[in-house]
Amino acid sequence: MPDMIENQPHTVEPILRVERLVKQYAVRRRTVHAVSDVSFDVMPGETLGLVGESGCGKSTVGRAILQLPPPTSGRVVFEGHNLCGLTGQALRAIRPRLQMVFQDPISSLNPRRHIADIVAAPLTLSFGIAPAERDRLVREMLEAVGLEAKTVWSMHPHELSGGQCQRVSLARALILKPRLIVCDEAVSSLDVSVQAQILNLLEDMKARFDLSLLFIAHDLAVVKNISDRIAVMYLGKLCEIAPSDELYAGPRHPYTKALLSSIPSPDPKAKGSTDPAIEGDLPSPFHPPSGCRFRTRCPRAQPLCTQQEPPMRVLAQDHFTACHFPLEAS
């Protein structure tokens, strides 16, 4: 652990504070508990990674932050304003400062429009802007994301590669100079080589435009690379939040540990261990287990885990874990 000087109270306000977020969906008179009581902060200039298995609720959290659709309960405080309960007009006023980038690069862009119009679209929504100024901004954004404005200006999305489409999505998200971008699996469908290009680009854009990111992905090596802190989700709940390097070096929640051991390593020396770290499937989100939601697959589970939900506790500085029997610090 670093020295004590670091140990001063946070004076900086978070840019985003998510408090007790709950999202339920009604499906044929049954309730899907997609997100159940999730709280976290994103600090200015910070990248917070959000990881977990498919269906654990990552995208639901991301969309609920943008009120697309609004959460069932809880608060989403962005730059000091609670977005929950805001009406269309008030939400639209915030929208320029809060953007989202999606996974599927090609289908998230309108196929019939020119690239320049796609990137300019957010401008027309917010206020009247002179055509020349509009074009200048679009050109600036396209060049910023590493596309040659002249070449792609009048192209359609299907004429571009997946990586180029993802650059276009990013240019579109950046044009209103947002403070926070929610990236939902923004590099997941790309080849490793292109993925590296986009990850580098995100880091550059973050520095250049003074951005904060909520980076949702299931690839743990990718998330570690880009994030300052990481939040791990399981079945609609947070298990653990910690600084990236610390989380990977010393996970305290059994689920985080299992998730980390599932990663195949491109290092033949690690070849010996093909034992899967987690057996079985994710329980149904219609009937999440009582107590700790991970208990049905947890090697450390005790009777208490069935009876009581483990509260989120701070185990080291900036390291929060929700487990009755956390792993030892390494």
């Binding site: 080589s193 292109v194 590296a196 090596a221 990718v222 300052d228 980390l260 990663i263 390593s265 491109p266």
Partner: peptide, 24 residues
């Protein structure tokens, strides 16, 4: 080598610059 280097490695600290392969 380029393919291998473009993969984020768990052993590296966060924010390690990736060696992307330009173009396609």
């Amino acid at each position: 080598a380029a393919l291998f280097r473009s993969i984020p490695k768990l052993a590296n600290p966060s924010h390690t610059r990736l060696e992307a392969i330009d173009g396609r």
